[in-house]
Structures are given as structure tokens and as C-alpha cells.
Design a protein around this nucleic acid. Structure first.
Lengths: 353, 353
DNA sequence: CTCGGTCTTGTTACCGGCCACATTGGTGCA
DNA sequence: TGCACCAATGTGGCCGGTAACAAGACCGAG
């Protein structure tokens, strides 16, 4: 409490020349404290929103803060608090609609919660490269890990790893659950019923790749719905979600032994429609086609696609919310169940007799 | 240098109970150093790849490292080095193909360079929300900032801000440059020439939203190419990149006073095709339609779309490379020029007389 | 045998925050 | 008037690394 200058024992910040935004390095709380004539701790308290600071002290701090254009250094903060406010996100096929939509909504949810997503993309689907990506994420000191695409390889890569932080795969789960049951109990039956009402009795299913849990989910839901409504599934053909694969599967079929094609996503349906038209078949005159997802573009296919609208944004948000609740131990407020809704457009019509 | 135990002055790590991966917190270099019987600095040197370590010391460190399942704490490292190995990425419309493709490729490039992208998504396009997103990014201690979508609002939001780190907008630039000139000098002229050869003399252009620099770019390139080849642009209609807008623009047109529609992207072309068919016009029999981008789906539209393939991945990679070179001051190895290539499919055909 | 240089390793300070604890000044009450 | 108590603020340590410098061991040369 003496006022006499102690030559070298001055505060570290003393040695640094006075600096504002224009100068070299960003201001720290020490710079601010010095400028305000208070201790760094007082600044820290102010920043934290501590109430018990005298008005005039508060004013001094505020002035210094503004003057130096202070911005907190989150790196330093997270070193002591252990909270980095960062979530590692892992995805492949980010250029595909589904994953990128989920990513976007998860990212928006993250932002609203003050988090940022550290995105690492995967080039390939093999377990080894997923592991590698996980290692990168782990180094970056994230508070949680979110996998945006749910394949067997992903599940496998997640097994037996000690992440030290919560990790989860955003998925249409294999196991019975809200999502699955909503699709299986409401969405898919509605789609099949729609076809049945139009007189269709045999359909071909274009499935997604089997190593995706969402694909298995959708296949099973379709089979159950068809069975229970007495609709025959003439064939289940496995594609890779792409329009190309939908096109090839239908193009290479010896004969179209059904009056309807149900596709596990809209893009394969798009390919199927083209292949049908190349075979001289009309949609929906000769064959009806349906998709799943309801891409924004699906309403503008020729013809506009009848499809099941899936709430992908909801999935991203729900996944993030779930992860967040695991991170801070708070109870996950039960997310609204993810809905699927039948959207009838003109790609479906009465079955030809 | 005495060996006698100094009660409380032991190393911090001493006080913590022995711990492996199974125990509480992750191991630090101090833990490793203690386990190996060396100083933490020796461990740090080993980790850095320092050569001058005696083989037996090296072995001890390696053993301890493995035993404790040590993983470096990047937060602590970046606090001293000032290098966080993190890039802030800013985008809206991440669920659209263009931005997500650019994001994906930028992210892949980042990963290869040992960086991670901190993604913040924008809900709206206004400058204020961009600024807010930038503030979030700035707090997260990134080494650079990359904006993935290039709108006027983005440019505006970037102006007059002291980022303290390199920041750039990945764009098809307004100013003459490689990208623009390749599109303007090669791609677009090829597209227009293709239509001219088919006998088209009047076309309608579906432009992207004017506040996107890429949209202005494409509009200007088209106008120039059309002018120089004696093709008349009957109308320039501004959409918002979506299939919906392409559909509405063509649907609401009093008359189709042209034999070809050139769209600034594939999705508006998709909407246009549907609108034409609803008007009873055949593509390409009555009207030819072209797009730009060459989405994977564009080859499977009905009819498959003639389009200009744009190298979006190249854009993402190039943007990241440029940013990286600004960060570490290295010379940017001139990236391969971004190419656009004419892809002729069946949505274009001879002009009706 | 001593001295300087090199090689290897250890010690201490520091990055920018937060936390626990210490200290100061003012107030109420006996 | 003295003292306990509380409100406001300051001090020092710590988080987990890196950097600068110091120190001990070993070497050859004078």
C-alpha cells in the first residue's frame, strides 16, 4: 500500500507501451486495469457481471474497456475454466443436402447457446479416417463431439474410444424411439396408404446404403407399413442416396414390375423419374414415384414430387440440445418429436390397371 | 540442487494422485515428466521433435507418454504461441449446394493444413447479424476469418472492422481477376456460342440476387458474351437462387419472348423447366434452358440440364490457401485458375423457327 | 590440470484469464 | 470510542503449455 515506485517490480503490463486497437497486440485485462487505475481482478469481476462494484469504479473500468477496445481472450479463459465453448462436429458428404442441413441447424443452435462448431470433414467413410478426424477434434479442446452422419463406420469408430467429453451421433436411431416410431407409425404408413388409395398394389423400394442407420430405418419402416397394408414390395434396390444411383437402378432393371417406386430419399427419386422417362414410361401415368425428405427442390421436379417431409433442422437442433445437456448436466428439455409429414404432389397418381 | 525433500515446494503435479486415462483429468506434460523422471521441458522438447535428446531419455519419455495416454492441450499451447490453428468461417445458406460445397472443400483444405474451421452460420443476411457473428468468431481466438458467401452485406460488414487477423471473403470477385475472366472469357462465351449455334437469337436471363457478387458477375459475363455474339437479351429477371424463384419468374411472365432461358444457377433453371412445362412448352423443343454450377443432380433433371460446371471445391480450397498465406506470410502459390466448363446435355436444342 | 565449448537437461518466467484468500475502509452497535 | 462485520478491492497462485536462460556433464586443447 505504499505509493513509492518500486522500480522493476511493477506490473507486467507496465513494461508494455501504451496501446489501443491500432497498436500491436490486443489489450488484456491488465492493460485495462492499468488504464482504469484498478486491479486486474476488478476488471475481471466487472466482465463477469459482478454486482458489488462501486459506481465510480465501474465507470472507470467501462471507460478503459471502451478506450482500449478490449476483447476477452477465450483461449486464456478456457485454460482456467476448462470451458472452450467449442463443439467438434464431424461429417462427410457435407455438400449433400441432409448433412449440410443438419450441420446448419446444429450450428445455429450452437451459436444461440454461445458455442461454435469446429467442423472437420471426412473424405472417405472408412473407420480409420474417422478416427483420425476424431483425433484432430480431440486436440482442439472441444467440450463435446457431434457426428452429423450416422453410418456403421461412424458408430464403429466411436466404440471403445475414451473421448473424455460427451460424444454423440445425430441419427435416425436404429432402436425404437420417437423418431423411428414417428416415421414408422405415422409417416411411412401415410405414404403407403396414399399409394394404396390410388390403387397401387406392388411397389419397388429404392433403399439408401445399408451402412447408414437412416437407410435401414427407412427400409424397415417401409416394409412394415407395406406388409400391414397388404402392399407387396416387389424389390428393394440399394442405392447410395444420389440421383445417379436412382437413375442407374431403374435404368438397369429388366422390367418395371410394379406401379409405384418409393425412394428412400428425393434425389434417388429424381434419378428414377429420369430413368422412367427414358424407358418411355410416364410419371405418374404409368408409374408413380415418391421420395423422402422434401428437399426444397423436390417441389420443382418434373413432375413435382410426392414425398415425406422430414424435419432435418429439428434433428440438428435436437442433437445439439442433447449434447449440450450432457455437457452441463442439465436435464434435456424433451425436444419436440421429429415429425414426418406426407406432402402430396403430382408424381403420384392412380395406378394403371 | 539439494536432494532433500522440500515439503510444500514439490512440483504441482506431485499433489495430484497418479492418473491414467481412466482417472479424472487428462495427463499434462508435468504428469508425463514426473512419470518419466525428467523435467517437463524435456517432454516439451520431445513433443516438438527436438533432436538432441539422448536415446535413453527419449525412451523414458515415450514410455510415459504412452502409459498416460498423453494428448497435448491445444488451448494452453495457443495461449503462449498465439497460434490457435483455428479459422473462423462465416456463412449463410449452408444448406444450399454452393456454400456447403465451398465450406466442405475449405474445411478439407484446412484439415490438411492442420487447421480446423470454426463455423458460425447466419440466419439472416443483414449487416448487423453478420457483425454479431463476427464478434463471436473474434472471441474464439481464430487465426483468420473466412466468409463463404459473398454478398454486399458481407462486404459491408467487413468494412471498417479491425479484425486483428487476416480476413477474406471467398468470392467470385467483382473486379477483373482469374475467376471472373475465366468465366467471362471462356465459360460464358462458350455457353452463349452453344446456344447461337443452335440458332437461338433471343434469350431470357434468370439472374441471381443482385447483392451477391457472384450474381452480378454472372449477369455481366452473360451480357458481355451475348453482346459480342450478337445475341439479344430479351429480359434479365432477378431471382434468389432458388428453384422456387425460377419457377415464379417464368410462371408469371406474360409471354415467353425468347427461345432460350439462361439461368444463373441450376436450381432456378429447374424451376424454370417446370414452369415452362406447366405453360405447355417443351424443353428443349420450344425453349432451351441452361444453368450454371452443374450440381450433381443437374444431370438427372428432366431433361438433363445443359450447364456450366463451376469448380466450387477449387474455390473453397483457393480461398483457404490464400488466407493461410496471409496468416503465415508465406507466398501464396498461385492456385490453379478456377475453371468453368460447358456441359452439354439435353435441355438445349435447336431453336424453333 | 584447467578452461572453454558443446550437448543435454533443468529452472524460471510468462501467456491472459479465474479463483481463493488477504486487505482496506466504512458502518452499526455496544 | 472500540470493535466486529461487511462491502469493495487487491495479491498471489494456478491452468498447461513454450521460451529464454542456466547449469551440469563431458570433451579436447593449451
Amino acid at each position: 500500500m505504499t505509493d513509492q515506485a518500486v522500480p522493476a517490480a511493477e506490473h507486467p503490463a507496465e513494461r508494455r507501451p501504451r496501446q489501443g486497437a491500432a497498436a500491436g497486440k490486443p489489450a488484456t485485462i491488465y492493460d485495462v486495469a492499468h488504464a482504469a487505475g484498478v486491479s486486474h481482478q476488478t476488471v475481471s469481476r466487472y466482465l463477469k457481471g459482478f454486482e458489488g462494484i462501486r459506481p465510480e469504479t465501474r465507470a472507470k473500468v467501462e471507460r478503459a474497456l471502451a478506450e482500449l477496445d478490449y476483447r476477452p481472450n477465450l483461449t486464456a479463459r478456457s485454460l482456467t475454466t476448462g470451458r472452450s465453448r467449442r463443439i467438434g462436429a464431424l461429417t462427410h458428404d457435407i455438400d449433400k443436402y441432409g448433412p449440410s442441413k443438419i450441420l446448419g441447424s446444429a450450428s445455429a443452435a450452437a451459436r444461440d447457446a454461445g458455442y461454435v462448431l469446429d467442423v472437420v470433414t471426412l473424405d472417405t467413410t472408412d473407420t480409420a479416417s474417422i478416427r483420425e478426424a476424431l483425433a484432430i477434434i480431440a486436440e482442439h479442446d472441444v467440450e463435446g463431439i457431434l457426428a452429423l452422419s450416422s453410418t456403421d463406420e461412424m458408430t464403429h469408430a466411436f466404440e471403445g474410444i475414451d473421448f473424455r467429453v460427451p460424444a454423440l451421433i445425430a441419427a435416425e436411431p436404429d432402436e425404437p424411439s420417437r423418431v423411428q416410431s414417428q416415421l414408422a407409425t405415422v409417416g411411412m404408413p401415410a405414404l403407403v396408404a396414399h399409394l394404396a388409395e390410388l390403387g397401387h398394389r406392388r411397389l419397388i423400394f429404392l433403399a439408401g446404403p445399408h451402412h447408414w442407420s437412416a437407410a435401414r430405418n427407412r427400409t424397415r419402416a417401409l416394409e412394415v407399413a407395406a406388409e400391414s397394408q397388404g402392399i407387396e414390395v416387389a424389390a428393394v434396390l440399394e442405392g447410395d442416396w444420389s440421383a445417379r444411383s436412382g437413375h442407374e437402378l431403374i435404368r438397369d432393371l429388366p422390367e418395371i414390375d410394379a406401379t409405384a417406386i418409393v425412394s428412400a430419399n428425393d434425389q434417388m427419386a429424381l434419378g428414377a423419374i429420369l430413368a422412367l422417362s427414358e424407358r418411355g414410361l410416364e410419371v405418374p401415368g404409368d408409374v408413380s414415384v415418391t421420395g423422402i425428405d422434401d428437399l426444397p427442390d423436390a417441389a420443382f421436379y418434373t413432375p413435382p414430387l410426392t414425398t415425406l417431409r422430414m424435419d432435418l433442422s429439428g434433428r440438428g437442433r435436437a442433437a445439439f440440445a442433447e449434447l449440450l445437456s450432457r455437457i452441463d448436466g442439465s436435464e434435456a428439455h424433451e425436444p419436440a418429436p421429429v415429425q414426418s409429414e406426407l406432402i402430396v404432389r403430382s408424381s403420384t397418381g392412380p395406378a394403371p390397371r
